[in-house]
Design a protein around this nucleic acid. Sequence first.
DNA 1: CCGTATCCGGATGGATACTG
DNA 2: CAGTATCCATCCGGATACGG
Lengths: 143, 143
Amino acid sequence: MAESIVSAPASLPAETSLAERFAVWQDLGLDPHHCPVRDVLDHLGDKWTTLIIAVLAGGTRRFGAIQRAIPDISKRMLTQSLRDLERDGLVARRVYPTSPPSVEYSLTPLGETLLAPLAALVAWAERNHPAIRAARTRFLAEA
Amino acid sequence: MAESIVSAPASLPAETSLAERFAVWQDLGLDPHHCPVRDVLDHLGDKWTTLIIAVLAGGTRRFGAIQRAIPDISKRMLTQSLRDLERDGLVARRVYPTSPPSVEYSLTPLGETLLAPLAALVAWAERNHPAIRAARTRFLAEA
DNA sequence: CCGTATCCGGATGGATACTG
DNA sequence: CAGTATCCATCCGGATACGG
């Protein structure tokens, strides 16, 4: 997919509002290749990625250990999610050619920089979880 | 769905690490009803929600205005996403019974509290977008 | 132990047409 | 203008079985 030559806009200062950032993406036609929400966050939003990052936030883990930490993930989805994270440079995979083989996963330095903003969002979710559930109940009661 | 009587754990201080938070959810069996990642963030992770919030971060908007701001969203998906946000108490919907009718959407106070952590995550995505794209290219080159 | 391969059901989401 | 209704293709993700 011969990438466009248009370079991404210079990154804005950290305190830039969401609304201002949106205006920039909009000028680029919300092209998914230049819209970080679509190109990066959509990935974090899938069913398992955030949970896996939370596990790896605790340190290097083996494949089986991650699977035990998230009881209802299948090997298929765990492998695929880890591959995607590796592909994006957030997770490192190290294979030890022992028998039976063992494979260790850990966050890369890039992956570690994600922890702070992600933890802030998760903290928001925890703090407001009761309010959100209350809103849902109220909404249902009106229908 | 007669809700369980087990109350959610008291919320942890803001600086608590992801790994520590995960341990708490895990003790509850990662039950989706008590895991904010699953009950709240999964919702934010769907295809349009974050973009819609970014638009509303700029102020109250009418249905048509939101649709024009996000060129490739269908009316169907916009309606559905807005309903979900309204249901969770993040967005308010106000109908003016004019002819033709006009409907305004805006963030609720609860919705506004989401802007700061969300903007931080988006800022991370913007800043590291080039590094992530580079990692993808590297990954492809090895296969 | 750490995967891959295959199959398949259900959810997601786009296109289109219609309504108050 | 702001939806709803319907149909339909695609994709996500679970179950199972097999391989290095």
